[in-house]
Write a protein that binds this DNA or RNA. Sequence first.
DNA 1: CGAGGCCTTGACCGCGGTCAATGCCCGTGG
DNA 2: CCACGGGCATTGACCGCGGTCAAGGCCTCG
Lengths: 188, 188
Amino acid sequence: MIEILKFFLTTHCLLEQEELSVALRYFKLKKVEKNQLLLFKGEVCNHLHFVNKGIIRTYFVTKNSTEKTRFVAFDGSVITALSSFISQTPSLEYIEVLESGEVWSINYHDFYLLKETLPNWAIFYTKILESAYIFQSYKIEHLMTLSAKERFENVLSQNPQFLTRLPNSVFASYLDISQETLSRIKSM
Amino acid sequence: MIEILKFFLTTHCLLEQEELSVALRYFKLKKVEKNQLLLFKGEVCNHLHFVNKGIIRTYFVTKNSTEKTRFVAFDGSVITALSSFISQTPSLEYIEVLESGEVWSINYHDFYLLKETLPNWAIFYTKILESAYIFQSYKIEHLMTLSAKERFENVLSQNPQFLTRLPNSVFASYLDISQETLSRIKSM
DNA sequence: CGAGGCCTTGACCGCGGTCAATGCCCGTGG
DNA sequence: CCACGGGCATTGACCGCGGTCAAGGCCTCG
């Protein structure tokens, strides 16, 4: 079970064997249930989660109380409310379990500690930031230049799981379109 | 003249006096003219610019060849084509001078060198990434939830210079609305 | 004074949102 | 085992925000 996390860390962190075993000690395995909230709006996010099994998303809520999905983590990737985690200030967004499963979680304190003690961990953190930045760059570009249908096709070509493993409502909110429009796009 | 850069670096980097003087050696002063392109699409961005005087923006071009402004740097702030700078791959965006002035520039190689030699410089880099991430988080949130007028008011409340120092076309492309809509919004 | 940018204003239209009705699937209990 | 209800997806009718196109106004600079 821990093998997947190990694999993830070795490929993303360049950790030596013994650094790796140090790091792994700080991760705790946790079962998570569908609809469970791992973070409420207003709380400070002090965990980073590696999704071992299941699906987790971050979302925020608009004035007219509709949910907008910022990021979806399928099995094998990492998720946190990054803005809050970075700045250790109250989060504007929620972390929610979409599909039951289990996560390996590390808390901010330990994460920070590793950053101070293992140089390769600091590099890992930098990599997370860099890829998060680039990810959002594309998202902005797509919101500004692509039509609803083009955004749909683009996301789908990157990761078909958005269509197959998510409820319509979540996928729509991720694309920033209404469920009705998504439904119409699919039936073309 | 170098005083402004000094001030910027000391407040953002926590550098010791002598670290500061090391770092400053790597910056080169350069006069820049309105309409000048500091980076073309397709080039690798290997400079980070501190805007001493003038205005500089990054923008990308859509399929139907309209320009979209990603970021505007007024005097006293820092600009680069971050995605390209990070990954040292060809840039999808341009860097353009909107108002003549001068910049202090450091190249990627030297920047990277400082990151290796001065721990505080690595922290500086991390801070740049963090704030760039948070900046884009808000941009996405606003694109997804606010109307044209609300985005206009929001940006304006953050920085009135968008209205006073930029041509309409640039401000509009930053807000992701047409020039005509911007004009109508202003006359309300 | 004239030309060329840029901004403004008007007329029109289309993408995608909203509201509402209906359909479909599935779990639960009688 | 079937009936019912609730949640989610689909479909249709309608509408409004903001885009596009085109004409006109206003500076600035030569």
